[in-house]
Amino acid sequence: MKKEITFTLNKEKTIMEVDPQWTLLHLLREVLEMTGTKEGCGYGECGACTVIIDGEAVNSCLYPVMEVEGRSVMTIEGVALKDGSLDPIQQAFVDEGAVQCGFCIPGMIMSSKALLDKKDKPTEEEIKESIEGNLCRCTGYVKIVDAIKSVAGGR
């Protein structure tokens, strides 16, 4: 049985008919066709599906869609500005060459953005902690950490 929910998606008020047993990830990818958010493991292990809900990074694959009601969701599609120019953290990933295959990157961006929105100058320890739930099998994390650091120092 479908239910109607109202929430904020990338700063826009959204009303959707959803099936209560969907996850937020299912709504984003299969219904709204916003495929920037990736599905890796589906068990909350890899972080590819990370989105920001009310300022906190969460795994959308474990988030029941009914809980989104009244909350504010930000996905990778909502990070860049309307005119297409990149957010500083996105630009830093490009500049530092932190992207290889790219599958983990939307999750990495969301996790690090959640950190940077809260803290202007996080320590290296805090940076690593913020992305500990994001698996990357290509880069070895060094350039990703460098990219986040470059934004953290530049703000």
Binding site: G44, G47, N59, I131
Partner: peptide, 9 residues
């Protein structure tokens, strides 16, 4: 416990 994303919920 878990990761940042897990601890947040």
């Amino acid at each position: 416990i878990g990761s940042k994303q897990i601890r947040n919920v």
